[in-house]
Amino acid sequence: MTTNTLHSSRFSQLYINRLGLWLFILSESVIFVALLFTRFYLLGVERAPEINQTIGLIITGLLLVSSLTAYRAEVHIAQGNRKAFMNNILATILLGIVFLIGVGIEWSEAFDHFPPGTLFGTVFFTMTGMHAFHVLTGLLLLGLLYLRGTQGAYSKNDYWGAEATIKYWHFVDIVWVFFYPALYLLS
């Protein structure tokens, strides 16, 4: 995040950055805990039977694959293999975009079955919306990463920006790991 030089710390800047990022992720996860709490408080373990299982499974798979490509990107840049890094980032971005399109299709269907004016709709749209918003910010960050990559930034000794973005992307995936069963599978 920041690259100031510090002379009084016994820790490397990389370590400090990592700790800060983890704390931020911890704090951010609270939003999703609150949403899960809301979901169970209002609905118990009920779910709408009309929910589209096929789309749910497909977008879950997409996000999972994107996590793998993100992971591969990080391994490649740690080895200094920039070309493979860029390709994997690009794949991650594309998968993320397809995920968002999938959510869009799911939303347009959900509007017919349980619009935001119903209880399940309220919970469903807020949870998927909050998650999609994080996917969107993740995509913007990945886009920036790609842009900086084309400018020749990041090497095997200095790829904190890539590492942070990829960690954030994994975090978004974890959220979906909990949201997917909470919205689609519970009964």
Binding site: R18, L19, S67, A70, Y71, K167, H170, I174
Partner: peptide, 11 residues
Amino acid sequence: IISYFMHIAQV
């Protein structure tokens, strides 16, 4: 994900 994709052990 936390332990193998995100390497929490680094912390």
